[in-house]
Write a protein that binds this DNA or RNA. Structure first.
Length: 268
DNA sequence: AGTATAACCTGTCTGC
DNA sequence: TGCAGACAGGTTATAC
């Protein structure tokens, strides 16, 4: 579910509500959540304070003392200040404050590592360039596009650009007027430049709306996002393009739905 | 080696 | 109303 704007919204919420609070207990309700860490490793976090909340791609990084919890919400993972129907882990903080990882589909993952060894967590170390950081440069971006691969698939590849998911990949391509099946290395310099610029401005706008809630996503306060109202292409099959009125079409690429306007986003 | 499919789960919606 | 099947914001293991 959550893509970059949703995870960043959660990150900001956690930073505002839990920073510097002391952790008093960790209760894991579903061991499938744990990747490379044991319950006993998690126990070591008890007594330390939440020193920082960071994000890398769609991963949340909660730093406690010299250790860090790395959480990936996958499709339906949520971090809430109360227990929901699908509680998988409870972080009990001082003053009765609790943070619950709730995850209907049980796809969420949790890694634990020393804070100075985060780069040993494989999915983290493989992440590509990160929007809103200096690594997201025109030079790096245009290099990525030299690959002979469909542009939509490339945008979803976390090892290329970190943080985009199906909603924002579709939206970015619509804004840049690029058909999702175009080969990345066939884009004109103008098209590539447009895509390069549309991605961060789209993500920034989605952040202002606290992300997109289609079904399960909630902020760390339990609120819905609002960006679903502003989606221009995702999920709008058969509805008129907001630019030209042509019915929006839907195709499948790599098992994921792609939406596009056949007039605004021409496949040459 | 690179790519396509299946798998991981649970719920919701659609069509017969 | 019931039920089978498709589909869902993501990633990874396995099969070609």
């Amino acid at each position: 579910m959550p893509e970059l704007p949703e995870v960043e919204t959660i990150r900001r919420g956690l930073e505002g509500e839990f920073l510097n609070l002391r952790l008093e207990g960790v209760e894991v309700c579903d061991r499938r959540l744990l990747q490379n860490c044991s319950i006993s490793e998690l126990e070591k976090l008890r007594g330390s304070r939440l020193k920082a909340v960071a994000r890398r791609g769609k991963f949340l990084i909660l730093q406690f003392g010299d250790h860090a919890l790395v959480i990936h919400p996958r499709m339906t993972g949520k971090l809430l200040p109360w227990e929901g129907h699908y509680t998988r882990m409870i972080l009990q903080f001082e003053a009765g404050r609790r943070l619950v990882l709730d995850d209907l589909r049980r796809f969420a993952s949790l890694h634990c590592a020393r804070a100075d060894e985060l780069d040993k967590i494989v999915p983290l170390q493989r992440l590509g360039i990160e929007p809103f950081t200096p690594g997201y440069s025109w030079s790096n971006f245009s290099k990525l596009l030299r690959t002979p691969q469909e542009i939509k698939r490339l945008l979803l590849d976390q090892e290329k650009v970190a943080g985009l998911g199906n909603i924002y990949a579709n939206e970015a391509l619509f804004r840049a007027r690029i058909h999702p099946e175009r080969q990345a290395n066939s884009l004109s310099a103008e098209e590539a430049r447009s895509l390069f610029e549309e991605i961060p401005s789209l993500l920034e706008e989605a952040l202002l709306s606290q992300g997109t809630t289609l079904s399960t996503y909630r902020t760390a306060s339990g609120d819905s996002g609002e960006f679903q109202r502003l989606l221009q292409i995702y999920g709008r099959e058969g509805q008129p393009c907001r630019i030209c009125g042509t019915p929006i079409e839907k195709i499948t690429q790599g098992g994921r739905s792609s939406y596009f306007c056949p007039k605004c986003q021409i496949q040459p």
